[in-house]
Amino acid sequence: MSGKSRRDFLKSTALIGAGVTGLTTTAKAGPQNILSEDRMGVLVDTTVCVGCRNCEWACKDAHNLPAGNLEDYEDRKVLDTKRRPGTDALTVVNEYSHGKNSSLPIDVKVQCMHCDHPACVSACIVGAFTKHENGTVTWDTDMCIGCRYCMAACPFQVPAFEYDKALNPMIMKCDFCFDRTKEGKLPACVEICPVEALTYGKRSDLIKIARDRIKRNPDKYVDHILGETEVGGTSWMYLASKDFAELEFPKLGKNPAPGVSESIQHGIFAYFVPPISLYALLGGIMWITKRRKELDEEVK
């Protein structure tokens, strides 16, 4: 009886091992991060932005959100309170005091930064997020289960969730007008901006342009392109006349946000070797302790 069960044990262990290895080979890898040399970006020059909020209107209009009349966006009282991108507005403009000149406030458009190494893409439980070749980070609502891990993971606190909906609540964020850029159009906000505070172009070109602007106007700009290196680089980058911390940008390091968690994750699951080893180890201990007990009993 005991001999038989031991043989069963070994056989089954081998079977399970084979099964798990089979699983690894068929396992679909997580979404790939494609970083094209030609990926696009937007340079937001906050020294140019006048805070007209036309971008807010254009964004809603392009994403079929209730937008209202463009003329209603002229009311600058809205800027008295700080707002965040949400489910009703994927981008918002906030206003900060200039410090030196009270009649020239600093206006900052906020939206998804479209990270080069997006935390949301790494975090999403079902892999609904995709980083596209042109830099855009989009998501597939049909896959989303609404766990909101992307929101917890995002270093810029951008994704929003429709908390008020009982059925079919959605995660929402700026999609860099993926549908428009596919057709060769500009993102809606870039297109409408009256002063071209938003420059749409190749990310590599934009960095050169930004550097050049700082070099030529060292008094006007702080020597920092936000998004050039933050969390491994972002598609949207900012120039400003004062420290970005004063414009409520989070202080972030150069390491990609998902770096540590992914290496932990890949360490634990490197080709399923650690789990299988653990399984084998435990199986071994179990077998040895069982055998020792049987020997003890035989002695008795």
Binding site: K28, A123, I125, V126, G146, Q265
Partner: peptide, 29 residues
């Protein structure tokens, strides 16, 4: 708890067929 907390509870089975090996939450799930 998970079923109640996720916004789209009727898709709780999605992780079974939609895999993201980079996600710690996927692994937990």
């Amino acid at each position: 708890g998970v079923f109640v907390d996720i916004g789209r509870w009727y898709f709780i089975w999605h992780p079974l067929v939609m895999w993201n090996g980079n996600s710690a939450l996927f692994e937990v799930g």
